[in-house]
Amino acid sequence: MAVLSDEIIVSTNKQTVRHRTSPLFDQGFRSASYGSALIVLAVLAGIIGTMVYGGWPAFQEFGFGFITSSIWNVGADQYGAWVAITGTLTSALIALVIGVPISIGIAIFLTQLCPPWLRRPVSTTIELLAAVPSIIYGMWGLFVFAPLFANYVQIPLTTLVEGIPILGTVLYARVPSGVGMMTAGIILAIMIIPFIASITRDILDQIPTVLRESAYGIGCTTWEVVRYVLLPQAGVSIIGAIMLGLGRALGETMAVTFVIGNANRLSLSLFDPSSTIASRIANEFNEAAGMQMNALLALGCILFVVTFIVLALARLLIARMKTH
């Protein structure tokens, strides 16, 4: 209201002429907003452009074999992305398997079980998990979590599964240091929980209260309301939230670089060190030159394409909820 009365005073003071916005300013303001909006497009185009341009020599040199080869030998100038690609996908998958149930549980707690006075502080606590810098997660993972994980999970589990056909390979730690694919997945799970949980909470909040109340009215328990009313209603949107978490997990760099062990070979064990696309770029790019740099940019290109598809799907799935 203060704004409007200001304007009125201006006009009664007969200083209208001085205060009148020139058409030039109006036009300029419009163009500036338009231009700024275009910068957003330009940034995305720039990222795609540099990745394709920089990675092109590597794609040309190694062809399709760049994706399927698991040899990454700087000395011989031979580069293949397979280890990094599988590392990225596996760690993100572990993160989803652990993180999704926890995130949805937190969202259900916040929307259905939590007393109103507790809702805000708990929401903020979970959201603050997203504010902690990824390098801090890396330090926590390496110095605090990994030793505990090695002592209380890896060593007992390794002696337990030794000799059992499939489990003996997948869960066998050759060097039980706590560092490796599984640890990276667990840290990633913690990092994506706040994103999935807060979007799922918002989705559950959007479902009309009438639906929930009528279900409770015919005697449903909270579990039945969640299982048969809320989750089917939220459906695709929750998948969208999960995809968003997946996009985050795929591109996470620093935390993973700390805990994944940065090994260059393919291993079937989840407890062995590995590497992801992002961690390899972080480790090697500053010392890279020539074909190695091109290969790293090509890795970046693959990562970008994959995250772009995942995030675009996420966005479409979440948007569908809003329209109806």
Binding site: G46, I47, M51, G251, T253, A282, G300, L303, T307, L311
Partner: peptide, 10 residues
């Protein structure tokens, strides 16, 4: 939500 390391490369 784009990977921040790619922005560094760019």
């Amino acid at each position: 939500a784009a990977p921040s390391i790619l922005i560094g490369l760019f």
